[in-house]
């Protein structure tokens, strides 16, 4: 086995671990949301530290592979993709942390019926599912799955637009709660962004495996 292969395998394992960590954060977010439980927030925030550490470790791995092995072709694309994927995952992790912080600060102030009018739970389900697919796509180098999953981003966009309408209606009825409702809306926006970031991950996987650039397709025409 070429020395670089062991390094690339270790990088892949680290990425898979990071995917698991972030997915776990989102699963905990759903639990916290369902129970309107601010205490889970601490756990989610402590997971964020692990995610950040993992990002730094992967950055270091990539830097060292580039410096020592000067990879080419698939190997180079994998290292380049990893740098971007780890950045995307870190940002998804940040979104999960913001949701946790919000719940922790507003748990007592949020009537459950309001929460249930938002699409946060189904959105969390979709992003969590997308990340699960990304893990499998990376592990098995399955670009078909990556492409298929990327399309789920559209479902998130739809739910996000519904949440915008919900927010407008609730603020109209309860103008004094405008600030908390707007903050709640930013959580929906974060989850919609998490979908965009997961779609980016799918595109990076396609770039790594097939050498095809999917992003900015319209601009490339």
């Amino acid at each position: 086995m070429a020395a670089i292969e062991a390094e690339l395998q270790a990088l892949k394992d680290n990425l898979l671990d990071m995917l698991d960590l972030v997915r776990n954060q989102l699963t905990k977010c759903k639990k916290a949301l369902r129970k309107n439980d601010g205490s889970l927030a601490e756990e989610i925030l402590s997971d964020e530290k692990k995610v950040n550490m993992q990002e730094l470790a992967i950055d270091r791995d990539c830097e060292s592979i580039l410096a020592i092995y000067t990879p080419v072709a698939t190997d180079l694309r994998f290292v380049l993709s990893s740098l971007k994927i780890t950045n995307d995952l870190e940002r998804i992790g940040d979104n999960a942390s913001r949701l946790a912080k919000f719940l922790s600060a507003n748990a007592n102030d949020l009537p459950q019926p309001w929460l249930s009018q938002y699409n946060l739970e189904p959105m969390l389900d979709i992003v969590t599912g997308m990340l699960k697919d990304m893990r499998e796509a990376l592990d098995k180098e399955d670009t078909r799955l990556a492409r298929k999953t990327a399309k789920k981003d559209e479902q998130l966009n739809k739910l996000y637009k519904e949440d915008l309408k919900t927010t407008a209606a609730l603020i109209a009825e309860n103008p004094e709660k405008g600030k908390v409702l707007l903050t709640l809306f930013t959580i929906a926006r974060d989850l919609e962004r998490a979908g965009d970031l997961t779609k980016n991950i799918a595109e990076e996987l396609v770039f790594h495996i097939e050498a095809k650039v999917l992003k900015h397709k319209k601009d490339q025409r």
């Binding site: 070429a2 292969e5 072709a73 698939t74 190997d75 694309r77």
Partner: peptide, 17 residues
């Protein structure tokens, strides 16, 4: 050749395999 070679043999050689 160094980013997206068409032949697997080329890729294996340039990547030191």
């Amino acid at each position: 050749i160094f980013t997206n070679p068409k032949n697997k043999l080329t890729e294996n050689y340039i990547s030191g395999r």
